[in-house]
């Protein structure tokens, strides 16, 4: 425990829980705010969304890199290709839907809307799957490194 900490152990754990909840509220709140601004209000000007995007991406990259460095994947989602396919499909469906709403609001043509949504969903699926596969390989490699039995001299 660090010095000059005014909290006891129980309070420290409670604060960590509060910070954990706050982190995920910020993450999903920013994502929902970006989606609502783009789809519901038709705001596609990147300059007006740049602030939210930067904060969201910094948060997402920090969480991903910190977990990979410590060999942590997820509490419940197993680390395998099937999970990656499912998550990529969910992301593709969500972004495809968002793009469909945004495009339909501006042009009102079903064929254009369907094509745009399909392209966006395909690209999202491909990128998400590639990113998840890369992250899975990096995490698995890190877990192997961390689980290697050290010699008695440098054990930790």
């Amino acid at each position: 425990m660090r010095k000059n900490n005014a909290l006891d152990e129980m309070q420290e754990l409670e604060l960590l829980k509060i910070e954990h909840n706050g982190c995920w509220i910020a993450f999903w709140g920013l994502l929902i705010a970006l989606a609502v601004q783009s789809a519901a209000f038709g705001n596609t000007d990147f300059r007006t969304l740049a602030g939210e995007w930067v904060v969201f991406m910094v948060l997402a990259v920090y969480l991903a890199v910190a977990c990979m460095r410590r060999g942590i994947w997820d509490r419940r989602i197993p680390m395998n290709t099937r999970s990656n396919l499912t998550l990529s499909a969910a992301a593709a469906a969500a972004l495809g839907g968002l793009i469909a709403i945004t495009v339909f609001r501006s042009c009102r043509k079903l064929s254009v809307t369907a094509a745009a949504a399909l392209i966006a969903a395909s690209v999202t699926f491909g990128l998400c799957f590639a990113a998840l596969t890369l992250a899975m390989k990096k995490t698995a490699k890190r877990i192997r490194q961390l689980e290697e039995e050290p010699s008695d001299a440098d054990e930790r």
């Binding site: 689980e147 290697e148 050290p150």
Partner: peptide, 8 residues
């Protein structure tokens, strides 16, 4: 637990 936990 993980080996890392015992090490720490």
């Amino acid at each position: 637990v993980t080996r890392q936990t015992i090490g720490l």
